[in-house]
Nucleic acid binder design. Structure first.
Lengths: 147, 147
DNA sequence: CCACAATTACCCACATCTACCCACTAACCG
DNA sequence: CGGTTAGTGGGTAGATGTGGGTAATTGTGG
C-alpha cells in the first residue's frame, strides 16, 4: 500500500457542481498532479466511492471475477460498474462529478469527503451526519482487540 | 513498549485552534521533537485519540484485518479510519487539530489531555467532568486481577 | 446539415486560510 | 534573583479555496 487515505473534509461544491479536492489529499494521489480518478456508487450506502485509477483497476478485476449468474451479483455489477466514471482535475484541482452520480448520492452543496484507505467516500453532509450519529455497535471482533 | 503515556493535563486551545502540547509528554514521544502523530475519533466516547505514528500503524493493521463486510465493522472502520489525520508540531510545539475532529469532540477552548499507555485521549473539559463524575462499575475482567 | 441550447473546459481574479516566524509573558530551576 | 524553558498571542507571505466569465464542445431539434 503506497499511502493510505484518511481524514474527513467538509467541502462546498460550487453552483457548477465542481468539487475543490483538498490539496493535501490530492498530493497523496501521486506526485504527478494530473492523475485520473474513477468515481462510482457505493451500492450499500447512499454515497460515492472515488478511487485512484490504479486501485480501481484492481477492484474491477475482482468484480469481473464474480459469478455473474448468481442472484444479486448481476444487480451489484450493473450499478457498481455501470456508474463508474473517469474524472480528472481541472486546472484548479477541482473535480466535476457527473450529474447522475451527484443525484445518486444526493449531493447538493455541502459534501463530506472521507478517506478510506484505498479510496474515498463522498457524502452529502446531512446523510453523513446521520451516519455519524448512529450509535456504533461494537462488533464482536472488535471487543477482543486493544486499540 | 517504549514509554507508557500517563497523566491528566488541562490545556487551553487558542483562538486559532492550536493546542500547546505539554513539553514533558512531547519528550516522551521520542527524542526527535518533530515526530508525527495521528489523531482520530474514539467511536465509543465523544473524545479523540492521539497516537504516535508508529503506534497508529500497528492499530491500523488490526483494524484492517477485521472482516469489512460484517455489519458494524464497516461503520466502525468508516469513522475510525475516516477521521484519522496526521498532525505535526509547529515551531512552538503546538498541534493544529483539523476542524472536523474538533467538531466531533466538541473541543472549544478548555480541553483535557489524558495519557492512555500507547495513546492519548483528548476531551472537552465539560465532557471530561461528566465522565469523571460517573460511577465506575468494575467489569468482570477486572475482578480477577490484582492492582 | 445547420442553428440553437446546454454543458463543459479553461482561464483569471479575489477571499480565505495556514504555516511559519517573531515577540512577549509566565513558570521553573539553579 | 537571574537565566532558561514553556506557554501564549498575533502578523504576514504564500498556499489554498471560491467564484465567475468566456470559448469550445456536445447534444438536440428543426
Amino acid at each position: 500500500m503506497a499511502q493510505a487515505f484518511t481524514g474527513v473534509h467538509n467541502i462546498n461544491m460550487d453552483a457548477k457542481g465542481r468539487l475543490a479536492f483538498p490539496a493535501r489529499q490530492r498530493d497523496r494521489l501521486g506526485p504527478d498532479s494530473n492523475s485520473t480518478l474513477v468515481a462510482t456508487v457505493n451500492v450499500s450506502s447512499p454515497c460515492l466511492f472515488i478511487y485512484p485509477q490504479p486501485a480501481w483497476e484492481q477492484v474491477l478485476e475482482k468484480v469481473q471475477a464474480l459469478p455473474t449468474m448468481r442472484p444479486g451479483v448481476q444487480n451489484f455489477q450493473r450499478l457498481f460498474v455501470g456508474y463508474a466514471t473517469e474524472i480528472e482535475f481541472d486546472g484548479n484541482g477541482r473535480l466535476l462529478l457527473p450529474a447522475s452520480l451527484r443525484e445518486y448520492a444526493g449531493l447538493d452543496k455541502k459534501v463530506v469527503l472521507v478517506g478510506q484507505i484505498n479510496k474515498f467516500e463522498l457524502w452529502d453532509e446531512h446523510r453523513w451526519q446521520d451516519v455519524r450519529q448512529q450509535p456504533v455497535e461494537i462488533p464482536e471482533e472488535l471487543q477482543s482487540i486493544a486499540l
